[in-house]
Write a protein that binds this DNA or RNA. Structure first.
Length: 112
DNA sequence: CCTGTGACATAAG
DNA sequence: CCTTATGCCACAG
């Protein structure tokens, strides 16, 4: 029972973890994938984000690749929207790359 | 079942 | 860090 069918569990997990990302912190697709038990499916994490269109609660802008580069900024509405959101949280972003990454990097498994 | 896809990760040059 | 290539895996059709 349930008013609506449960969507792809994998996607839901990705959204769930993304929501756990604290303010002013970022994580990588691989970290999320690994937390889900599918470290080799990091691409799916990004793809799940692509499907997060109606997921306003999913701070996709806090999810970057391993280099801390805003690889997915092109998927946001604005050309610099993703960077603006990060800077709005006190994160330094230069040339589409997050600065002080080691200082603001948030690992889901480290917090859990 | 097969094919295409994709916002990654890793290796090699 | 760059490009190129390969792997990898969940999902849509």
């Amino acid at each position: 029972m349930g008013v609506k069918k449960e969507e792809a569990n994998f996607f839901e997990k990705v959204y769930n973890v993304a929501r756990l990302i604290p303010f002013g912190r970022v994580t990588s697709y691989g970290a999320i994938a690994k937390y889900l038990g599918a470290a080799r499916s990091a691409r799916m994490v990004g793809w799940a984000m692509n499907a997060c269109g109606g997921r306003e609660d999913v701070p996709a802008h806090r999810v970057v690749n391993r280099k801390g580069i805003l690889t997915g900024k092109h998927h946001f509405q604005g050309t610099n929207l993703m960077q603006q959101l990060l800077e709005s949280e006190g994160i330094e972003v230069v040339d589409n790359q997050i600065q002080n990454l080691d200082d603001i990097f948030w690992d889901p498994m480290k917090e859990c």
